[in-house]
Amino acid sequence: MLLRSMLDTHATRFATTEPDLLEKAGITDGIVLPDCNRNEPLQSLKCLIRSFGTVFSLRPAVIISTGAAPGFFCLLAGRLIGARTVWIDSVANVEQLSKSGTLARFVATEWLTQWSHLAKPNGPHHAGAVL
């Protein structure tokens, strides 16, 4: 939501795993994806299918994710349709990149970390923090 004002001039759809977040932000056309992680293979499969279905139906030109498996699945689907994809690893991952953030290097057009000490010459790059 901290990036929302930057996106006001663009046709934007938000996806989250937290339905309350959409309601609190006054977003009526948001998409709720199932939350998942690598320890929940069936839930992850549900999320993958829903993420791909969402991206394939909306056909966005750009996808931005701030982390976690559902965001990674959306970026993966986005690359398959030719979208530009941006991964911004969560600010919570101060010691190391998340597992999804590490995998994002293979699908993200732009691969970013919010911590300068985690940046590497070949990525992820540090362009500042969202917070």
Rank of each mutant, 00 (worst) to 15 (best):
Arg4Ser: 12
His10Ile: 05
Ala11Arg: 12
Ala11Met: 12
Thr12Ile: 09
Phe14Thr: 10
Thr17Asn: 06
Glu18Val: 14
Glu18Asp: 15
Glu18Cys: 08
Glu18Met: 09
Pro19Val: 06
Leu21Asp: 11
Leu22Lys: 00
Glu23Ser: 13
Glu23His: 13
Gly26Thr: 02
Gly30His: 02
Ile31Trp: 05
Val32Pro: 06
Pro34Thr: 11
Asp35Trp: 15
Arg38Met: 10
Arg38Glu: 14
Pro41Thr: 02
Leu45Tyr: 09
Lys46Val: 05
Cys47Thr: 13
Cys47Pro: 02
Ile49Asn: 08
Ile49Ser: 03
Phe52Ile: 11
Gly53Ser: 01
Thr54Ser: 13
Val55Ile: 15
Ser57Trp: 03
Leu58Gln: 14
Arg59Asp: 03
Pro60Leu: 04
Pro60Ser: 02
Ile64His: 09
Ser65Lys: 08
Ala68Val: 08
Ala68Phe: 10
Ala69Arg: 08
Phe72Thr: 08
Phe73Trp: 11
Cys74Ser: 08
Leu76Thr: 14
Ala77Phe: 01
Arg79Val: 11
Arg79Ser: 02
Arg79Ala: 03
Leu80Gln: 04
Leu80Lys: 07
Ile81Met: 11
Ile81Leu: 15
Ala83Leu: 06
Arg84His: 12
Val86Leu: 14
Val86Thr: 07
Trp87Thr: 07
Ser90Gln: 13
Ser90Asp: 06
Ala92Glu: 12
Asn93Tyr: 07
Val94Arg: 12
Glu95Lys: 12
Leu97Asn: 07
Lys99Asn: 12
Ala104His: 07
Ala104Met: 06
Thr109Phe: 10
Leu112Lys: 04
Leu112Met: 03
Trp115Phe: 03
Ser116Phe: 07
Ser116Cys: 04
Ala119Asp: 06
Lys120Met: 10
Pro121Arg: 00
Pro121Ile: 05
Pro121Gln: 05
Gly128Ala: 00
Gly128His: 00
Gly128Val: 06
Leu131Ile: 12
Leu131Gln: 09
